[in-house]
Design a protein around this nucleic acid. Structure first.
Lengths: 145, 145
DNA sequence: ACTAAATAGGATAAAAATATCCGATTAAAA
DNA sequence: TTTTAATCGGATATTTTTATCCTATTTAGT
């Protein structure tokens, strides 16, 4: 509905890695894709992008995996993850795809949609990995079903 | 951000045809794709789907084109157009793609997103072709730029 | 040192979305 | 009745997204 598969997997993977990291564990690819119910090889690519984008850390070699520090978990927002996987996600935000949709040059749904757009942006920019992974940890939310 | 290209074009085409119909004109493919800034052949396919889906009417042969009746323009909602082009658009509404995301089985963003989801659904189900095409007609909104 | 277990990265494949082309059909107008 | 201007529908092409495979590299443990 709103995110691509790659972004969906990327967000879920980040949340899982964060939750495991909070409990002192590092996660490997197999474990991650099992827990977020995603194709392993594709998830590997996405994890690479997240590492390159500075969202998560990778540890190579036997016993390696992916991890995050608590300080980072607190700081990283949903928007950071999304942008690491699609740099111009926040650009094309007109519902009807107009390049320059604005208050003075609106598409026919602009005014009715702008509230939703604002709330969505707020959600992305203010939701932290911490709150999402905490909910997962407490059993108040799930990454698959 | 939210709709596919096909749906974007479909909505814009419907709005344009509605506006023209309100002024007593019928629109043909070439004219439509010019006014909504979309690829002609692809738009033809989308118009076919809209006709099959009962959203707009087509008139074959020379001087033909596409049109709508005022009564229909008043009745048709954004959601009707969207569903004519993607029957299960309103099904997969979990931000993280969970098959069965719900109040009791929520994904980690469910509770923060549900308000937005509700408003989006409301917008789709309550915005009429009439209001969109009227705004276009009055020069208060645009289909391209 | 050697082996095993991991991520990294390049090449490729498959599927879906977007887009084009062309012949068939329809209907108005000359 | 012929021509012309349209939509319809099937086949195909292109592009993007999703997904897989395989080799290289790194590192822990024996």
């Amino acid at each position: 509905m709103i995110f691509s598969k790659a972004i969906e997997y990327g967000i879920k993977a980040s949340i899982y890695v964060a939750q495991q990291s909070m409990n002192g564990y590092r996660s490997n690819l197999k474990e991650i894709s099992e827990h977020i119910d995603s194709p392993e090889a594709f998830t590997a690519k996405i994890l690479q992008q997240l590492v390159k984008g500075g969202i998560i850390h990778s540890i190579k070699g036997a016993g390696g995996g992916f991890a995050l520090e608590i300080k980072e978990i607190k700081k990283i927002k949903l928007a950071d993850i999304v942008l690491a996987l699609d740099a111009d996600f926040l650009d094309s935000t007109c519902v009807l795809g107009l390049k320059h949709c604005s208050e003075t040059n609106p598409c026919p749904v602009h005014h009715k949609y702008k509230g939703i757009k604002k709330e969505t942006l707020y959600l992305l920019k203010n939701t932290t990995l911490l709150e999402m992974s905490t909910n997962l940890d407490k059993g108040l939310a799930y990454l698959k079903n």
